[in-house]
């Protein structure tokens, strides 16, 4: 019995005030921690990345494509800042050399680049979560000549809302995402129509 520990004939009871204070402080800290967690949760909901640009696009918005600066693994080398492509329609393809559908769609993307290059369209590959040397080998093997940047850390994936590989986005000349996100190979039958539509919207051609 704790009671036996104090008070007049049991002297420790006079400690009750201190224990009460400690308990109050403890309760305050616990409540503050819970409130803090709720505030963080709310902040994340309101201001967090959520599903990134992909989520905004899916919900009907046409957000500005998230910017990044990454090292190029194509022949040109150096760094590429996405914002430097403003004014050009861009097909942004997230891939990795270990991803099987990425291999299947590579020829289709290269063909797109060759077909629409004269109209200013840029196909930009983002080789994410991959060894740079593997990415370079992949490019050689599949004859890829469009610009490719390496994002080993996957730092762009959250902002763009990339859920898996491959994933393809379309950006118009104003730098806004248009069309729909293509999940899976662009060469797949279920994606072909949306792929063509995305290119059309990025180029700004009348439907």
């Amino acid at each position: 019995m704790v009671v036996l520990a104090g008070r007049s004939r049991y002297p420790g009871l006079c400690r009750r005030g201190v224990i009460g204070k400690a308990r109050t402080v403890g309760q305050f800290v616990a409540v503050a921690a819970v409130v803090g967690l709720f505030v963080l949760f709310g902040w994340k909901l309101v201001f967090g990345d959520g599903s990134g640009a992909s989520g905004q696009l899916t919900s009907g918005d046409s957000p500005v494509a998230p910017d990044f600066t990454l090292p190029r693994i194509d022949a040109k080398g150096g760094n590429l800042t996405f914002a430097s492509l403003r004014g050009k329609p861009v097909v942004v393809n997230f891939w990795a050399s270990w991803c099987i559908p990425c291999k299947d769609e590579a020829p289709a993307l290269q063909k797109t680049y060759e077909t629409y290059r004269s109209q200013g369209l840029v196909v930009l590959g983002v080789d994410a979560k991959d060894f740079r040397q593997d990415g370079k080998r992949f490019m050689r093997r599949y004859g890829i000549t469009y610009p490719v940047v390496a994002d080993g850390r996957g730092s762009t994936l959250g902002k763009w809302g990339v859920a898996g590989f491959p994933e393809t986005f379309f950006v118009n000349r104003q730098g806004h995402l248009v069309g729909s996100v293509i999940q899976g190979g662009v060469d797949l039958g279920r994606n072909r129509e949306r792929y063509a539509e995305g290119i059309r919207l990025a180029l700004g051609s009348p439907k």
């Binding site: 008070r7 007049s8 049991y10 002297p11 009871l13 006079c14 400690r15």
Partner: peptide, 30 residues
Amino acid sequence: WTWSRRGDDEPEASGGVLDPDLERRLDDEL
């Protein structure tokens, strides 16, 4: 350390800490 010091410093008769009613009930219980 604070609690143990308080215990040492407090006078034996620390009746003022508890209100008389509670004190009486506590005595009965004890």
